[in-house]
């Protein structure tokens, strides 16, 4: 069973779910965060269950998870403001534990920094990856006054974008592909360490590429359909 958590209008999720060819259980983040579940930990053994759309799934039976929650879910108005915040954090902490624990591939197995909207999380990823690729990180970084939510982004029109899906490098140019491929062993280690199998790298245009952004939740709305198909195919391959 493959679990897909994504907005119903997420084209990439639809293509991935449709191309997997096996049983897929799909739900939105609101479905997920209100779903009955349990996770039990006995020293290093972990097991649990999840019921989504009436279907009970043993977490051990999941063969892959494709995770694209926008993190817009918030407990309903039946709770007061303080209780909303409490329920929100209890829910996020619980589901983080679930996704961290399942033994199958999870794309992406986001770190707590992402779940907690920590603005230094993408910056840390960018700094690490720039060092691995031996390219400077861009001067700009996130805006100095950045505060609030870390929203998913589409490709930067002023940048050259490269998508990384496992070992697949998907871009329209070749120059950066070569640089990334030559560091692939270290890139794979970085992916495993951070749980990020799928991301978009935005490099500043210019003679010397500088890494501007590492987007771990790439939006593809403005990418050509054939390009999205290539990314979906690589994701399906990675999940299998």
């Amino acid at each position: 069973m493959i679990l897909v958590i994504a907005d119903p209008y997420d084209t990439l999720a639809t293509k991935v779910a449709g191309g997997l060819g096996g049983p897929v259980l799909r739900g939105s983040e609101a479905d997920l965060f209100t779903a009955p579940f349990s996770i039990k930990i006995d020293h290093e053994k972990v097991w649990g269950t999840l019921r989504l759309h009436g279907e009970m799934v043993n977490l051990a039976d999941l063969t892959a998870v494709f995770l694209r929650p926008y993190r817009t879910w918030w407990p309903g108005p039946e709770y007061g403001a303080q209780d909303q915040m409490f329920v929100y954090h209890e829910t996020i902490a619980s589901w983080f534990t679930v996704f961290d624990s399942v033994p199958c591939p999870v794309i992406n197995r986001f770190g707590l920094g992402w779940w907690l909207q920590d603005h230094s999380y993408p910056e840390r990823l960018r700094t690490e990856l720039a060092a691995i690729l031996n390219v400077p990180a861009s001067d700009s970084g996130p805006p100095a006054g950045a505060f609030g939510k870390l929203n998913p982004t589409g490709p930067d029109p002023d940048a050259r974008s490269v998508y990384l899906v496992g070992q697949s490098i998907i871009s329209t140019g070749k120059l950066l592909d070569t640089a990334i491929r030559s560091s692939m062993t270290a890139v794979r280690d970085w992916q495993k360490r951070n749980g990020i199998s799928f991301c978009r790298l935005d490099f500043e245009s210019g003679a010397f590429p500088r890494l501007k952004t590492v987007e771990v939740f790439p939006l593809l709305d403005h990418e050509p359909a054939r390009f999205v198909d290539r990314i979906a195919a690589a994701l399906i391959e990675e999940v299998r």
Partner: peptide
């Protein structure tokens, strides 16, 4: 932040 995760 996630106590059960930390237990693991």
């Amino acid at each position: 932040y996630a106590k059960a995760y930390q237990t693991r």
